[in-house]
Computed example of a mutant assay.
Amino acid sequence: MTVLDNRALNRATLARQLLLDRADLPAVNAVAHLCGLQAQEPQEPYVGLWSRLRDVDPADVSDLLVRRRLVRTHLMRRTVHLLTADDVLAWRSRHGGMLRQRVLGVYRGEFDGVDLDELAAAGRAVLADGEPRTTAEIVRVLAARWPASDRRALGEMTIALVPTAQAPPRGLWRTSAGVRAVALATWLGREVDPPAPDGADPVGRELVRRYLAAYGPAASADLRAWCGLAGLSAAVAAVRDELVAFRDERGRVLLDLPDAPRPDSDTPAPVRFLPAFDNAVLGYHDRGRIIDDAHRNLSVAGTRVVLVDGRVSATWTVEAGDVLVTPLRALTRAERAATAEEGAALASFLSDGDSDRVRVAASPG
């Protein structure tokens, strides 16, 4: 079985994530290809798309949210993602059990004696008129029925039980707005697809294929880490004959689509600026293909990172319109120049062309 070393896996990851070459795709197609972008920080997906697409207009992305072709909702790992409407409708039921269990895991014992079916029905009734509501407004109604329950727990469980979207202006470009939930069925004009019959898992099989197209080659543990779902082993087995297998340097079996891109390990990788919580880093159980163990905590702390030669090599932030880059390792003169050039382009994007100021700090040591 062919062994793919970390550098080969890195280049495959960059190619699948549209980070090796910027893609000539409409934003909605890119969101679909990537199986969504993590979006609990509302402005971050715009940077994620800018780093991946040759031409992206933030106003167009905002318009897709307003026109309900893109949706902000809790899905993979119970985190907020920006997804296409079609994918949300198709995938929400498959994620329902995971969403519920994760809330139960956070609020252990809080729902003892609470009939979750009854809570779900009450939540749907609150949202039945189609008006977006804050969590506080939803909980105010539910607390009259469950006065002993923790209010935050009630709100989070209701969002897990009732398929909802976060309505604009939340998530629009350069807009600061609180979360207001609206029932998905009302927002998108049809109910989410029902759960599959027992023993069938068409969504699971689709998720395997779609994940490999956007993230592979990968192990089953990587797939689970990305979506948070249990019970995918049967879906993997169902499509196994469609896939090819490799091993990584640790001996793990990695599955992949046979015709998906796997560039040579010596393929040049341009500097790319990633937003907070980008799934190019978070979408694996073993993140060693893109980030060193010494920096692994950055990926879950909401730190924005810079890929240099395909790996997390710096962090970045914005201060008074300047893009500030802090290297995590010594950068060569050429790497510093390329980082500064890409940082200037990012500064221009973030400021609508008013600024291209970038500062790259001294390398550590």
Rank of each mutant, 00 (worst) to 15 (best):
A213W: 07
R209M: 00
A221Y: 07
A269R: 03
L243F: 11
A221K: 07
P194N: 06
D248K: 12
T186W: 11
Y211K: 11
L184Q: 07
A234C: 08
D266E: 01
A225P: 11
G199S: 01
V236M: 07
C227A: 11
L223M: 14
A237R: 12
A183V: 04
E191N: 11
G216I: 08
E206K: 00
E206V: 01
D264L: 00
D259N: 03
A200D: 15
R250P: 06
D256F: 14
W187Q: 09
G189I: 13
G189D: 12
W226R: 12
D198K: 03
A260G: 06
R209C: 00
G199E: 06
F246K: 08
P258M: 09
D201Y: 00
D201A: 03
A185V: 06
L257R: 13
R262C: 07
S233T: 14
G251T: 11
R262I: 11
R190P: 11
C227D: 13
A219H: 05
P263L: 01
C227E: 02
L254T: 10
S220M: 12
D259A: 03
A218G: 10
V239C: 05
P195W: 02
V236C: 02
A225M: 06
D248W: 13
R224I: 10
T267N: 03
V208M: 10
V203T: 14
D198F: 05
G231K: 06
P217M: 05
V192F: 01
A214L: 14
A181F: 15
R262Y: 06
A238E: 09
A237S: 13
A185D: 15
V203A: 06
L232M: 10
L254W: 14
C227F: 05
P261R: 02
V236Y: 01
L188R: 13
V192R: 12
G216E: 02
D259C: 00
A214E: 11
V182Q: 15
R250H: 14
L243T: 07
L257Y: 13
D198P: 10
P258F: 12
R224E: 09
A185E: 15
D256Y: 13
A219Q: 04
L184N: 03
A221E: 10
L223V: 13
V192C: 12
R209L: 05
S220H: 15
A235Q: 11
D248H: 12
Y215H: 15
A245F: 12
L257V: 12
S233I: 04
W187L: 15
P263F: 01
E191M: 09
L184G: 06
A219E: 02
P261E: 01
V239W: 09
V236W: 07
T186K: 15
T267R: 06
L188T: 13
R210Y: 01
G199V: 05
